[in-house]
Simulated assay, not measured.
Amino acid sequence: MNPCMSMKFEEKQSMDQYFEQCILEHGRSLFNYIYSLVRHKQLAEDLYQEVLISAYLALPSFEEKAKVKNWLFKIAVNKCRDYWRKEKSANRFWEEKVYLYVEDKNMIEEPEESVLHKCSDDEMVNTLQKLPEMYRDPLLLFYYHNQTLMEISHLTSIPVSTVKTRMRRAKERLRPKVEELVANG
């Protein structure tokens, strides 16, 4: 066998043994740390495996052997952050982009929408005009101009969460007035 190859094989063996020893020493506390961050056992197990794979692959470039525990925990935090970013991105779809797909007329209308469609446009616009502008504009853009929450956010330069809050508060203010219109109409 070539001496150079035997040296690399021995280095690889010692590296594997070192990694195994690190996991024996710090594996349990590493898993507990990940679990404390995500609070879900199966997710913690998955992230733990990802951390081990990343650490194993990066081990040859790791130089400060004395700080291996800190290094493993840093990888764990980064893996958790990556997971949270992906999760947040997925949730953002349901919070914001789902409105782009709600154009099917066969879907059941929200109560506010059905009331808005039942009332005459003139009466409704007059009722809406009584609202402060910050509440009136998002409702007009959403219900009368068919803008999505994201589009309203871009048009008004306010966050989507603020648009949602203003729409909810506007509906709360409108509800008694619209009930009067429906009762009298």
Results as ranks from 00 to 15, higher is better:
Arg85Thr: 12
Arg85Val: 15
Arg85His: 12
Arg85Cys: 09
Lys86Thr: 13
Lys86Ile: 13
Glu87His: 14
Lys88Cys: 07
Lys88Trp: 05
Lys88Tyr: 10
Asn91Cys: 09
Arg92Phe: 09
Arg92Asn: 13
Phe93Ala: 05
Trp94Ser: 11
Trp94Pro: 01
Glu95Gly: 02
Glu95Thr: 12
Glu96Cys: 07
Glu96Gln: 12
Lys97Ala: 10
Val98Tyr: 09
Val98His: 07
Tyr99Trp: 12
Leu100Asn: 13
Leu100Ala: 10
Tyr101Gly: 06
Val102Gln: 15
Val102Pro: 00
Glu103Thr: 15
Glu103Ile: 09
Asp104Asn: 15
Asp104Thr: 05
Asp104Pro: 04
Lys105Asp: 15
Asn106Thr: 10
Asn106Leu: 02
Met107Phe: 12
Ile108Cys: 03
Ile108Arg: 13
Ile108Lys: 14
Glu109Trp: 07
Glu110Asp: 11
Pro111Thr: 08
Ser114Tyr: 06
Val115Lys: 12
Val115Asn: 08
Val115Phe: 06
Leu116Lys: 02
His117Ser: 13
His117Gln: 12
Lys118Ile: 05
Cys119Ala: 15
Ser120Arg: 08
Ser120Asp: 15
Ser120Tyr: 06
Asp121His: 11
Asp122Ser: 11
Asp122Met: 06
Asp122Tyr: 09
Glu123Lys: 10
Met124Asn: 04
Met124Trp: 07
Val125Leu: 14
Val125Gln: 10
Val125Asp: 06
Val125Gly: 00
Asn126Lys: 14
Asn126Thr: 07
Thr127Gln: 04
Thr127Phe: 04
Leu128Ser: 05
Leu128Thr: 04
Gln129Phe: 07
Gln129Val: 02
Gln129Trp: 01
Lys130Gly: 02
Lys130His: 06
Lys130Gln: 12
Leu131Lys: 04
Leu131Glu: 02
Leu131Asp: 06
Pro132Lys: 11
Pro132Gly: 04
Met134Leu: 07
Met134Gln: 13
Met134Arg: 11
Tyr135Trp: 05
Arg136Ala: 00
Arg136Trp: 00
Arg136Asp: 00
Asp137Ala: 07
Asp137Pro: 00
Asp137Leu: 10
Asp137Arg: 14
Asp137Gly: 00
Pro138Arg: 03
Leu139Ala: 05
Leu140Ser: 01
Leu140Cys: 05
Leu140Asp: 00
Leu141Arg: 01
Leu141Tyr: 02
Phe142Ala: 07
Tyr143Pro: 06
Tyr143Val: 03
Tyr143Arg: 10
Tyr144Leu: 09
His145Arg: 15
Asn146Leu: 07
Asn146Lys: 14
Gln147Ser: 11
Thr148Met: 08
Leu149Arg: 08
Met150Cys: 05
Ile152Gln: 03
Ser153Lys: 06
His154Glu: 14
His154Val: 03
Leu155Ser: 09
Leu155Gly: 03
Leu155Cys: 01
Ser157Asn: 12
Ile158Tyr: 01
Pro159Phe: 01
Val160Tyr: 08
